Simulated scan of single mutants.
Amino acid sequence: MKKLLLLSALVSSVLLAEQKPYEISGLVGYDLTEGNIGIKSNGHYLGALELQFNSPDSKISPEFSVLYSPKAKYEGGGDSAITRGAFNGVYTFDAMDALTPFAKAGVGIENVGDETSANQDGFFVDAGAGVKYAFNDSLALKAEAIYLAKLAHQNAGNFDSNLIAMVGLTYAFGEGAQKAAPVTEEVKEEVKEEPKQEVVKEEPKEEVAVVAAPVDGDDDNDGVLNSKDECPNTLADVTVDEKGCDVDTDKDGILNSDDICPNTPVGAEVNSDGCPKTVQLAINFENNSAQIKADSNEKLDTYAKFLTTFTNYDAKIVGYTDSRGSATYNQKLSEKRANAVVEALKTRGVNAKQLSSKGMGEENPVADNSTAEGRAQNRRIEAELTRK
């Protein structure tokens, strides 16, 4: 018989975080300049303002920045303000706890307030890298280093080099995209199928001259002696009560002998096999994408094993989001992630005819969207089981 299907272990919460679409950073730092620019001691202080636009469909974000040096002192005397404007592409790597590394490159223009023979206006290219340390969803410490090379007409077309190091604060704002974060509970499922054992009744023996005292046994192998067994013909390996009778261990209204999912959560709506009609899958995704993270492979393997074992079931994968962000964006993201789970199940051997997907966006919340805990519950992937 079918035994030990621990499908209910798949029911767990999906914990997600948000990435804001806009970031503004204020920084201060030091510009170490090349000697041929004529700046005294080859360096000066500067400040910067950076505005970054994050996209849910790309890991590369555009950034506009302004760098201002109020007083660069020259060796020949006098000083000048230097203003730079730049456009960069910023590649954000996957976060490591509170740390998020990034790299950037781009182009810009430099304006020297009082041009000298050594330092004049010009175009430049830049490249750099840095890291952000998040204090919360909106505020982070930011540090970066940039190499800047300006085309120097006064130096026969050679580049002037600048090495800039800066540190400051980043404030993220706006309604953002969901990303995945680690779940808090790991679960496993085991499906076994064992042959049904037939109970063979012994034909009564004819009495002869001497009648032996009866020996108490357990004819149906349920662990209850015949003398106390009020249900003497239960199937082998079915959990019974002290009277030897079939029971409903998980209180779902289906006796253990007919229940192929004997550990469903209390109160879950089940079908005649005792399996829940809807299961929440704890699937994690890469930041701002529908790419499934590697730590969700075990959950996908478990669910695929159920569907390939019980091919009389179809599964509709349904994606939900919380109410933050636009309804159009939430609908698109929920559809992408539901489709990604369907494709992952297909690669694990599940027949495509058993699967379908649907994105519900921010509809049908299961908790209060005004709290962080409620929003985390509303961001979920559900599987709706249908028996053919």
Rank of each mutant, 00 (worst) to 15 (best):
G253Q: 08
K196R: 08
L99W: 05
T239Y: 04
K353I: 09
P56H: 09
L333N: 14
V167S: 04
I39K: 04
K192S: 14
A98F: 06
V107N: 00
A372H: 11
G122M: 13
D57N: 13
A177G: 11
S257C: 09
A290D: 13
L27G: 03
A105H: 02
G35D: 15
E185A: 10
T184C: 11
K316Q: 13
A140F: 04
N256E: 06
S323W: 07
D250H: 08
P232N: 05
R337C: 03
K305W: 10
K346M: 06
A127P: 12
D314S: 15
T92D: 01
D241L: 12
N256A: 07
V90F: 00
G76Y: 04
N111F: 15
C231L: 03
G47S: 11
S296C: 04
D220F: 04
E193R: 05
A145E: 10
F306M: 09
S356G: 05
L355C: 05
V125H: 01
V247P: 00
D229M: 06
D57P: 07
L32T: 05
Q280H: 14
T386V: 11
P232T: 04
F285G: 12
L27D: 01
S356K: 01
A344L: 05
V211M: 15
A352N: 11
Y133I: 06
K336L: 10
K277G: 09
E230A: 07
Q331V: 05
A367D: 12
Y313S: 13
L141H: 10
G359I: 03
T33W: 00
N256G: 08
D137C: 03
A103H: 02
P365G: 04
I260Q: 12
